[in-house]
């Protein structure tokens, strides 16, 4: 995330900042391709319903496998949404050079990201997943763990963002806060896409 290059020559912070933002957006292109592929997997296997094993029906020996509620995924998305709003307020504060509000907004965003990941992990470990439960449960796990990875990165980035705000390192320019905001937007969208998919069982 550092804006420093190896150059002796000093560059305009806006030039470096916009370049860094483009780099992050391009990395997000890869992550977006990944997330869309996950959705493709979900809807492909749901549509194929191979051997009627998307959600296996009851047999003489086993009970029917029931879908999980998507409400948990939507709650995670809501937490991410509030976190995005909070980070957005931090970004506005950074632009207005109001450091205390920047620190507060960053801290709230960090706490929400920690809350979201804790809730997501709780959702995962409350599912009694065993082999043979059909491809729905496999896809559910895939989407849930994708969320965990995104949230873990969000916690890491938000921690740094809050700490740097606390140390008043954003006094000169707000590019890092703006770039973190790009990540928060994508985090919210990807979480929402996952919740959207899980609403169709």
């Amino acid at each position: 995330m550092s804006t420093h290059t190896t150059n002796h020559h000093v560059e305009d912070p806006d030039v470096v900042g916009s370049r860094n933002r483009l780099g992050v957006i391009l990395i997000l292109v890869a992550d977006i391709a990944f997330a869309l592929s996950v959705l493709f997997v979900y809807f492909y296997l749901k549509g194929q319903n191979v051997n009627d094993m998307w959600l296996p029906k009851a047999t003489e020996d086993t009970a029917a496998v029931l879908p999980l509620s998507s409400s948990g995924a939507w709650i995670v998305t809501a937490l991410a949404g509030v976190g995005l709003l909070s980070h957005g307020s931090a970004l506005r504060a950074a632009k207005a050079k109001q450091n205390s509000q920047l620190v507060l907004g960053s801290l709230v965003a960090l706490v929400l990201s920690i809350g979201a990941i804790a809730y997501q992990l709780n959702l995962i470990f409350s599912v009694n997943f065993v082999m043979g439960m059909g491809s729905y449960y496999s896809c559910y796990m895939l989407i849930a763990w994708l969320n965990v990875v995104h949230l873990a990165l969000t916690v890491f980035i938000s921690l740094g963002n809050w700490n740097r705000a606390r140390l008043n390192l954003y006094a000169k320019d707000h590019w890092h806060v703006a770039i973190v905001n790009v990540w928060w937007i994508w985090m919210f969208v990807s979480s929402g896409l996952g919740a959207f998919a899980l609403s169709f069982t």
Partner: peptide, 20 residues
């Protein structure tokens, strides 16, 4: 995941697909 934790993305017997 299919190999290590028993998901069924590619295992047709459990709802997966080789075409995927």
């Amino acid at each position: 995941m299919d190999r290590a934790i028993g998901t069924s993305f590619y295992d047709a017997q459990h709802g997966g697909s080789g075409w995927l």
